[in-house]
């Protein structure tokens, strides 16, 4: 009978850097946090190497991201693959062709959370009526973080410009007319200072907390909701 540490060792060997975290918090229990792109490889490895049974797939809506938990029974252990996908993407690979028993649960998750299982051979609704509206999924949370709209807008402005008010050309013009510099020496007037401040917001965890996309330089969601 295989034990938890052997499973972890095997999976790490096969998946290498695709495993972010592996732990066995108690006897017969294994959690593997993996890259979503490696899910199919992980499932294939597990099913080919061990006598494996799919228990179920569960999903959690974290607001910004969807987390999928694929639970397997492996030689007396429960092994869970945890994958997180941004809700902007909203897809996860189907494993039905590897594990046919995943068919109904993938469709149920699709119905309840609105996630798309890529390459599912039978993607029609399972428990919801066929004409159920796409934008009203029973277990789907609004895309974003749990903050008032004004706080989201302020956080976005703070990270993207270093101040919470936008600079209008009207005010710039009026400032010049009044004999003031076009803008005060705020961060956005200095590229180096701006980069430094944005890195500080990233390093401190603020950007991640409010769901700010550092590459796109905006929030990952609409301030007013989906």
């Amino acid at each position: 009978m295989v034990n938890e540490q052997e499973i972890i060792k095997d999976m790490k060997q096969t998946l290498a850097n695709d495993v972010f975290e592996a732990e066995s918090p108690k006897k017969h229990r294994v959690f593997l946090r993996i890259r979503p792109e490696a899910l199919r490889k992980a499932v294939k490895t597990l099913t080919q190497k061990y006598e494996t049974r799919l228990i179920t797939v569960s999903a959690v809506d974290h607001g910004l991201d969807l987390e999928f938990l694929h639970h397997f029974h492996v030689g007396g252990n429960v092994v869970t693959f945890r994958t997180v996908k941004p809700k902007e993407d909203n897809t996860i690979d189907s494993i039905v062709d590897i594990v046919p028993a995943a068919n109904f649960i993938e469709r149920e998750i699709s119905d309840l959370f609105g996630a798309k299982f890529t390459n599912h051979h039978q993607p029609q609704p399972l428990i919801l009526p066929a004409n159920w509206p796409n934008d009203k999924r029973p277990l789907r949370e609004p895309h974003g973080v749990d903050l008032p709209s004004q706080a989201k807008a302020s956080a976005e402005a703070l990270i993207s410009s270093g101040c919470v008010f936008s600079v209008s050309s009207f005010i710039e013009k009026k400032r010049v007319e009044a004999g003031l510099p076009r803008t005060p020496p705020l961060t956005f007037t200095d590229e180096k200072a701006m980069k430094e401040f944005q890195s500080l917001m990233e390093e401190s965890g603020f950007a991640e907390k409010v769901g700010y996309d550092m590459e796109k330089k905006r929030l990952r969601y609409k301030v007013g909701g989906e």
Binding site: L147, Q150, A151, S154, A155, L158, G162, C163, V164, P185, L186, T187, T189, D190, K192, A193, E196, F197, S204, G205, F206, K209, V210
Partner: peptide, 15 residues
């Protein structure tokens, strides 16, 4: 190169 102080209510409550 200064930034918003940052404002004392919202950003402090967030983090």
């Amino acid at each position: 190169g200064y930034t918003c102080c940052p404002e004392p209510v919202i950003s402090r409550l967030i983090d």
